[in-house]
Design a protein around this nucleic acid. Structure first.
Lengths: 113, 113
DNA sequence: ACATATAAATGTTGTCGACATATAGATGTG
DNA sequence: CACATCTATATGTCGACAACATTTATATGT
C-alpha cells in the first residue's frame, strides 16, 4: 500500500532546478534524497524532462567541454518557476485535505499512532 | 493544477462504509462532502465498487422491499477494514513527505502564505 | 406528458508509472 | 588487453486508473 501522489516527481525536479541548472542523472540523485524508499526510474525521468521541455517548463542544451559522457543540462524557464509556485499551492491544498481526513479517521490504526 | 492523490476515492469509500452499509449513489454524496471542488464520476465509482468487491474488500447485495429504483447495498469486509487501516498509515506517510517538502520550499509563493 | 432526480452500469480514450532494453563514453581491475 | 561497471541519455511496451460519454430503468414533481 502506498498513497501515491500523481506526478510528484515534477515538483521535485522543479525544486532541484530552482537551485540552479543540472543534468538528468544528477536530478535523479536529488529525487532519491526526497523519496529514499522508492528508486527513481531514469527512463521515466528523461521522458518527463523532454515532455517538460516541450511544454516550455525547462530549457536544455548539451554541455560542451566537459569530461565524460555527453550531458544535457536543464534549467528552469519563467513558465517553470510559475509552475513551481502553482505546485506549492496545490500541495498545500492536498495536504490540508489529507490532514482533515486523518483528523476524522486517523484513530483507526489502534496502537500505532 | 492539482496535486492529485491516486485512488484517493478508495479510502473515502472505506471511511464512509466503516460508518455502516450504504449504496453507491449515497456514497457519491459522502465523497462530495470530502472533495467539494471536483464532481464525482458515478461511472468510475460503480466500477471501483465492483473491482473492490472482486478483491474481497466490500460485499454487496440487492436491497429488497425498498421503494424506488433497485439499489445494491455495500458493506465492508474484514479485508476492507484492514485495507482502511493501511490507507491511514499510507496517508500519514504521504502527508509527512509533503509537509517536509513544503517546509523546505513552501516560501516560493510570495505574499500568499 | 414531460422533465428531472435517483440508481447502476458499460465503452472508449489518454496519461502516467513500472519494467525492460538500447546506446555509448569513462574508468577500474585482473 | 579484456572485461565489468559506472555514468548518462533515450526508446518500447504494458497495465492501471481517471476523464468523458452514453445507456438503461424507476420514481417524482409540474
Amino acid at each position: 500500500m502506498a498513497a501515491r501522489l500523481e506526478r510528484f516527481n515534477e515538483p521535485l525536479v522543479l525544486a532541484a532546478l530552482s537551485a540552479g541548472p543540472t543534468h538528468g542523472y544528477d536530478l535523479a540523485e536529488s529525487l532519491r534524497a526526497w523519496v529514499p524508499e522508492e528508486q527513481i526510474d531514469l527512463g521515466n525521468l528523461y521522458r518527463m524532462l523532454r515532455s517538460m521541455e516541450d511544454d516550455g517548463i525547462v530549457r536544455s542544451e548539451w554541455s560542451e567541454n566537459e569530461p565524460g559522457r555527453a550531458k544535457r543540462t536543464y534549467e528552469l524557464t519563467d513558465v517553470g518557476e510559475r509552475l513551481f509556485d502553482a505546485w506549492i499551492t496545490a500541495l498545500r491544498s492536498t495536504n490540508n485535505t489529507i490532514t482533515e481526513f486523518l483528523q476524522e479517521h486517523g484513530d483507526e490504526t489502534k496502537g500505532i499512532a
